[in-house]
């Protein structure tokens, strides 16, 4: 997967619950350049909906979302 984009940075937030993955990812996204892609791993079941809401609110683009054995992988392109 992720053939259409290159991951610039990967962060692993497995074991953390709301709001920590979102709080952390909002800082991480500022550490890559506009247009670059951040990969985030999480296992909080709320993160699936939350990452979509966060992307909608911030304008960052959620390119892809995968789930494997209770672990979610999110791919976000920094918008601004």
């Amino acid at each position: 997967m992720s053939a259409e984009f290159e991951v610039q940075k990967t962060v692993d937030y497995k074991g953390l619950f709301c709001p920590m993955p979102i709080v952390k990812v909002s800082k991480d996204i500022k550490e890559i350049e506009v247009g670059q892609v951040l990969e985030m791993l999480a296992d909080d079941p709320g993160s699936k909906a939350d990452m979509q809401a966060w992307s909608k609110q911030t304008g960052n683009e959620l390119l892809d979302m995968q789930e494997e054995g209770g672990v979610f992988k999110f791919y976000v392109r920094r918008a601004s």
């Binding site: 709001p19 979102i22 709080v23 909002s26």
Partner: peptide
């Protein structure tokens, strides 16, 4: 505190 930090994380 949870709601506040989450909203701040969304740029509010």
């Amino acid at each position: 505190l949870i709601l506040a930090t989450t909203a701040a994380a969304m740029g509010w």
